[in-house]
Nucleic acid binder design. Structure first.
Length: 320
DNA sequence: AATCTATCCAACCGCTCAACT
DNA sequence: CAGTTGAGCGGTTGGATAGAT
């Protein structure tokens, strides 16, 4: 289960302690398989919580050899060992949800994580920092600025929707059949079951992302194939990667959220307002994106940049 | 093949807050 | 009411590794 070895202790793990572990016998750094097993078995018998007590019981037969702080135990359990923790790359749906919820709540990672079953706040935080903020840095804009929010709306979210659309089409046997019921069945029937949220379910076609002519023109000569075009994303959306529609429903609290209730099922079903992402109406004049940022997008080498999940890969965008 | 660089993510740290005494 | 403790949260670090040179 654990992918780390006992020999790979970090520098940090060797540094002196300043927190709640005054004992020099406490271990730090990567967890070993034995430690994982000890913790899992202990929690299986006694349940979660009381982390410090757990740490203090390290001398017990049951926890012999586990010399970790309660804090460390809690983190290891919540972020890695807990059975419902989902491993692997974030699906386009999950990315879409993160982008939307972050625009709503900011860096409230744990709150955002509550809406992504199986995902931890740590994972979401890492995603935001390594993927999203990276793009912001590259475009020389503040990741929390409205300008970047608009860029996300203009380019990123439409691309995600396209991916979702493509995924649901190519995996119709696993996702479409169930997800297509979301908007057509009584939500009270399906709300208890995890359902796939897919652009395929939308009652209208998602418009492809379009770039302003001056931007696309500059980008054309800059096309760059991203070698890991599918890295970080699943082309198939399985039922285990789905999210409960009732969790998505709360997105409507956000006034600019792309998720809106369908009139019939006001509280249970939501669709994405594609108009939010219609590039035709998005220009530097209509957006909070300063012209200079648009210029950055156009002139910088961001098209050839590794956009991780390939969401921004311009060869895909231009091919549409 | 060796070295360098960039990226990812597990783990740690410091802080806040609520519950308890 | 003040002090203490435990739990949780967001920010940061650095080792592992993949990719580039």
């Amino acid at each position: 289960m654990s992918s780390v070895s006992s020999s790979s202790l970090s520098k940090k793990s060797l540094s002196s302690s300043s927190d709640d572990d005054s004992s020099d016998k406490l271990r730090r750094g990567p967890w070993t398989l034995e430690e994982d097993n000890l913790l899992v078995h202990y929690i299986a018998r006694h349940g979660e919580g009381r982390w410090n007590l757990l740490a203090k019981c390290a001398g017990n037969q049951e926890l012999l050899g586990l010399r970790r702080t309660g804090k460390s135990c809690r983190l290891r359990w919540l972020n890695y060992l807990k059975p419902d923790v989902k491993r692997g790359n974030l699906t386009p749906q999950e990315q879409l949800l993160i982008l939307d919820l972050h625009s709503k709540w900011g860096n409230r990672w744990s709150k955002i994580a509550q809406h992504l079953p199986g995902r931890t706040d740590n994972e979401i935080k890492n995603y935001w920092r390594t993927r999203v903020q990276k793009q912001a840095r590259h475009l020389k804009v503040d990741a929390n600025s409205t300008a970047f929010q608009d860029i996300i709306k203009c380019f990123w979210i439409p691309r995600l929707l396209q991916k979702i659309e493509g995924s649901s089409t190519s995996c119709s046997s696993t996702s479409t059949s169930s997800s297509s019921t979301i908007l057509s069945q009584n939500p009270t029937v399906v709300s208890d079951q995890p359902v796939n949220y897919s652009a395929h379910d939308l009652p209208f076609p998602i418009p492809p992302p379009q770039l302003p002519q001056e931007v696309s023109g500059n980008l054309q000569g800059n096309l760059d194939h991203n070698s890991d075009s599918e890295h970080g994303s699943n082309s198939c959306i399985s039922s285990t990667e789905s999210m409960n529609i009732s969790q998505i429903s709360q997105l409507s609290e956000y006034p600019t959220s792309p998720f809106h209730p369908i009139s019939t099922f006001q509280k249970d079903c939501y669709y994405v307002d594609s108009g939010c992402y219609n590039m035709e109406s998005m220009t530097p004049a209509t957006l909070s994106v300063p012209a200079g940022v648009f210029q950055n997008v156009a002139e910088s080498n961001w098209v050839g940049y590794d956009f991780g999940d390939n969401i921004w890969s311009m060869d895909e965008l231009m091919a549409i």
